[in-house]
Amino acid sequence: MRILNHPILGELKDMETVTIYCDGMEILAIRGEPIAAALLAAGIRTFRKTVKTGEPRGVYCGIGQCNDCIMEVNGVPNVRTCVTLVEEGMIIKTQEGLGKSGGLHD
């Protein structure tokens, strides 16, 4: 859920939107925000499944330290979604384990 109005920060206005796709679903994101913010705003909280046990993970530290929120972005796995800003037409996928679409080492 977006915080459109805030008692201290005021109204969110003049937002420029971009369209991104998460597992095929179209999502309206705000230019300049990280992927994780757009996904949380859209109600998506599971970003990946772990390697060993396949358990779900999502945002943990939110500032690029913990790497729990990594996803496949435009075919590249292990992208930290909390510090990677959205771009028009971005294709984002829930990452299964080490990721499918690219090599582990770019």
């Binding site: 977006r2 969110l12 913010a37 943990y60 530290c61 939110g62």
Partner: peptide, 17 residues
């Protein structure tokens, strides 16, 4: 998540976690 993560999302990105 960490408190800092929640604080970043609400106050910087304006999204409720």
């Amino acid at each position: 998540m960490t408190a800092g993560a929640a604080q970043t999302f609400i106050n910087v990105h304006r999204v409720l976690p």
